[in-house]
């Protein structure tokens, strides 16, 4: 590949073999640094209680204690946590994407006075830390009697500026001729959006949906504050509960793996589409 050959030049001049070696050394080093926490997490989750406290710790346990995973599962209602995380995450993500689709289309295509100012007001919401919204939102939710319900986990996060921004950037690259043609055919905005624009934007939609779902899945403080009963809790809160049992690092790490595996799986499976989608949306000026 031409590109490859060209970029090779960036490496300091030198004979081919040492430079290839350097490249692999760099890659192996990075791989080790990136993977070490996961390795240690998995390793610790398989150690026996005595091995966890051992000094110095072993890099390979003499026996694998698979029962840690069963103990972690029984230490808290993880089945329920999974259901809550998936249901509220999927619901909030769907709403985020639907609402962002409508808004981004409106910003990109429909004429409206003062559109720029509204867009700015929407984008600036990304600069607000969630911690700042905690108390006012809790008060509001408590007035609505939504505390400790799915509503609390779905509705407040249903509007997010990030998918709006990415989709808006993408829609601006749609050729105007295409829209005009559709208009002439007598299609209204909603029909254009549903039948023409949204299908075109599928990779971008998928990518923003992944980002949204990840955000919901990993959210910690808000679910902690607005849910009271164990049956309403999500996975990160469940993990936090196990932290209470100090010293049981093996159980804790097994639980951590329960929490992170679905997201890693999802992103690994969808990574090409994800990168392509974000690139198409966010990187076009």
């Amino acid at each position: 590949m031409a590109t490859d050959r060209q970029i090779t030049r960036i490496a300091p001049a030198g004979s081919c073999i040492p430079s290839a070696l350097l490249v692999y050394a760099g890659l192996v080093f990075s791989a080790v640094m990136l993977a070490l926490p996961f390795f240690w997490m998995a390793l610790t989750s398989l150690k026996s209680s005595a091995a966890v406290a051992a000094y110095p710790p072993s890099w390979w346990p003499s026996e694998f204690t698979w029962s840690n995973y069963r103990d972690a599962w029984n230490a808290a209602p993880f089945g329920r946590y999974y259901i809550n995380s998936v249901v509220t995450g999927a619901a909030a993500t769907s709403l985020q994407i639907i609402f962002a689709l409508l808004m981004a289309y409106a910003f990109a295509v429909i004429r409206f006075p003062g559109k720029g100012a509204i867009l700015l007001a929407v984008i600036s919401t990304m600069m607000i830390p969630d911690e700042m919204k905690l108390v006012p939102n809790y008060i509001l939710l408590s007035r609505l009697h939504w505390v400790d319900t799915y509503w609390a986990l779905i509705i407040p996060p249903a509007a997010h500026a990030f998918p709006v921004f990415v989709l808006y950037q993408y829609f601006r690259t749609v050729p105007p001729d295409l829209l005009d043609a559709a208009h002439v055919d007598g299609a209204g905005h909603l029909r254009i959006l549903i039948q023409i624009i949204a299908p075109m934007a599928r990779p971008v939609l998928a990518a923003t949906a992944l980002v949204a779902f990840l955000g919901r899945w990993n959210d910690f403080l808000w679910p902690l504050i607005v849910t009271n009963r164990t049956v309403m809790r999500t996975l990160p809160i469940g993990l936090n509960y196990l932290k209470e049992n100090e010293g049981r690092w093996n159980i804790l790490m097994a639980a951590a793996i329960y929490v992170i595996i679905p997201m890693i799986g999802l992103y690994v499976a969808a990574q090409r589409q994800f990168v392509e989608g974000i690139t198409r949306g966010a990187l076009k000026g």
Binding site: F38, P57, P236, W249
Partner: peptide, 29 residues
């Protein structure tokens, strides 16, 4: 590429926990 994605999608609460262990000079690697 798989490895590169994993840290980013890992729940911060879980990542921070394993880092506590990693950085411990007695219990870490």
């Amino acid at each position: 590429r798989t490895l590169a994605f994993a840290p980013h999608v890992t729940t911060t609460a879980a990542a921070a926990l394993v880092w506590v262990l990693l950085l411990d000079p007695d219990l870490g690697p």
